[in-house]
């Protein structure tokens, strides 16, 4: 019983939110990109580049500039993916795989150039500090969970309804979804398919960059090689689980976040399961969650992954 109380303490729920944040941002990026018909498995690499740029920015100019730089770098990677898959009509999985490979290598080259005698891991940099929400933090349990968090956690939570609104309630969102479902029909109605996809994939990159920046200058205070550890892919899985909708994805992300927070607290509570096995828990859960979708109508946007050739 004592163990159970330890395992399900309030700190577990608070850290669930923190751990879920980068995954939420990745899954929002996935929603944007795939709703416009571009598969984006490059979210992982975009996050990683965002994380790296954020640390560089934070080192030279302070944490908030770092955040901005991380977001913009993610956007730039999104633009690259859009150029490859929309303009050049490259295979979207190959293009994104190249981004993922580059994002592992490039920081390792630049780290020793920027910081002498550092390899694969940056020095610690200024971070974005947690804040107290004035009123909410004084509410007993809820306050303990959401009252004292990082600003980016709040931003991510706010972005969920915002992206949902953008996609389903605005003209731009309607157009983005139209080119993802039936680009030819959208084209005949005068919608610029290429422009919509460029916008959507770039926003997707910006979101991934924000997720990466959160990892390196808020959740941790340094960059280390391949530090995203599959979170971009888990975000993508969450998006599928949430049927390509931000709100559904949020629930899946919280589930994964909880799995991770739970394993961390189980470890510190001394549950006799080897840490390596516990660490694989979120990945196993992702697989199980995807299998659990079987038989339900989990339809992706009709034109997802198909390049559009303007006549």
């Amino acid at each position: 019983m004592e163990l159970l109380i330890k395992l399900f303490s309030i700190t577990v729920f608070a850290s669930t939110l923190r751990i879920a944040t980068p995954v939420i941002l990745a899954s929002l990026g996935g929603c944007m990109s795939e709703r416009s018909g571009v598969i984006n498995i490059g979210l992982e690499g975009m996050m990683l580049m965002g994380a790296f740029s954020a640390v560089v920015g934070s080192w030279f100019f302070g944490a908030w500039t770092g955040l901005l730089l991380g977001v913009l770098t993610g956007g730039l990677m999104g633009l690259l993916h859009a150029f490859m898959s929309v303009t050049l009509k490259a295979n979207q999985i190959i293009s994104a795989t190249a981004i993922n490979i580059m994002a592992v290598g490039l920081p390792n080259i630049l780290i020793p150039v920027i910081w002498e005698n550092h390899y694969g891991i940056s020095p610690t940099v200024p971070v974005i500090a947690d804040i107290n929400l004035p009123l909410i933090s004084s509410i007993p349990i809820i306050g303990d969970i959401i009252g004292h968090q990082n600003p980016i956690v709040y931003i991510a939570l706010l972005l969920v309804p915002l992206i949902s609104f953008l996609l389903f309630k605005t003209k731009l969102g309607l157009r983005i979804r139209a080119v993802g479902e039936h680009p030819l029909a959208a084209d005949t109605l005068g919608i610029n398919v290429y422009r919509m996809r460029y916008i959507a994939v770039t926003i997707s990159g910006l979101l991934a960059g924000l997720g990466g920046a959160f990892l390196s200058i808020a959740y941790q205070s340094q960059f280390s090689s391949a530090m995203t550890a599959g979170r971009g892919f888990i975000g993508l899985a969450a998006m599928i689980f949430g049927r390509w909708s931000p709100k559904g994805a949020l629930l899946a992300c919280l589930l994964f976040g909880f799995a991770d927070a739970f394993q961390a607290s189980a470890q510190s509570a001394g549950v006799p399961i080897p840490p390596e096995i516990m660490l694989s828990f979120p990945y196993v859960l992702t697989l199980v969650a995807l299998v659990g979708l079987f038989g339900k109508t989990a339809l992706s946007p009709a034109a997802n992954g198909k390049p559009y050739y303007k006549g």
Binding site: M84, T97, A98, V104, G105, L106
Partner: peptide
């Protein structure tokens, strides 16, 4: 890791 950049560019180009 410079090699991985070469790798990525080759993948991008072949794609």
């Amino acid at each position: 890791d410079m090699v991985s950049v070469i790798t990525a560019i080759i993948v991008l180009f072949m794609g």
